[in-house]
């Protein structure tokens, strides 16, 4: 344990600042009622976590987090928000003490577990010692791909990545089925110029027919 204790280095200060900002962001997201602000804050949260991943040397994860979390999911959340309310309904606080109790218990358990967790970058940690070590040692002989993350993702664990691609594909399929695959505006009445013209013509013809009926009725 003593080997991994560090003084207050610049990296540590950056990490602490980023984590503090993440906490501020999370609390603000819970407090704010305007959904637009919540979506923007979640984008900022993703960007902050991406910066935190960079400081932990996980560049590929940071890249994905910045592109997916901060980029596209913010846009998708905004376009989803347009279909619902703009403000969150005020919540009833009747069961708040129970929720608070559960959160405190779980939080305490997690903090207690983190004392036993291996230090960051510990080569003897189970995650690094067996399979991770095998990837690092055999990667060059097996694949000769300089970026180990890519060779693990696409070569050693090609099946996993195939499953992930299926997940994205299925998500798009589900959105197509839920929001309407056949109609351009998803089942809603579409009123573009041509449809409006057709509707106006239909109403005009109905009016004409009505007029003729009244006239012929008057003759009888």
């Amino acid at each position: 344990m003593a080997d991994y204790q560090t003084t207050l280095s610049p990296i540590l200060i950056i990490d602490l600042t980023l984590l503090a900002l993440l906490l501020v962001c999370a609390v603000a997201m819970v407090r704010v009622r305007r959904l637009f602000a919540v979506v923007m804050l979640s984008g900022i949260y993703s960007l902050l976590s991406a910066a935190f991943f960079v400081s932990m040397d996980a560049v590929d994860v940071a890249f994905t987090e910045a592109a997916v979390g901060a980029g596209i999911s913010t846009v998708l959340m905004l376009s989803g928000m347009l279909l619902t309310a703009k403000r969150e309904k005020p919540i009833k606080t009747g069961r708040a003490p129970i929720a608070m109790f559960v959160c405190l218990i779980v939080g305490a358990a997690l903090v207690y577990a983190s004392i036993d967790a291996p230090a960051f970058g510990d080569p003897n940690a189970p995650a690094n010692a067996y399979l991770g070590k095998m990837y690092v040692e055999n990667n060059w002989a097996d694949t000769q791909v300089p970026n180990i993350v890519t060779s693990v993702l696409a070569s050693y664990r090609g099946f996993d990545t195939l499953g992930e691609t299926y997940v994205v594909f299925t998500a798009a399929l589900a959105v197509m089925l839920l929001l309407g695959i056949a109609t351009e505006r998803g089942g809603k009445k579409k009123l573009d110029a041509r449809a409006m013209e057709a509707q106006a013509r239909r109403e005009y013809l109905e009016m004409q027919a009505e007029k003729e009926r009244v006239i012929s009725g008057g003759n009888d």
Binding site: L82, V168, F169, A171, A172
Partner: peptide, 19 residues
């Protein structure tokens, strides 16, 4: 290719609802 087209498909379907 799959991710790009899936993301665009999701976005088009969400965004087309409000003109």
């Amino acid at each position: 290719v799959a991710v790009a087209s899936s993301m665009l498909m999701i976005f088009f379907h969400f965004a087309s609802r409000e003109p």
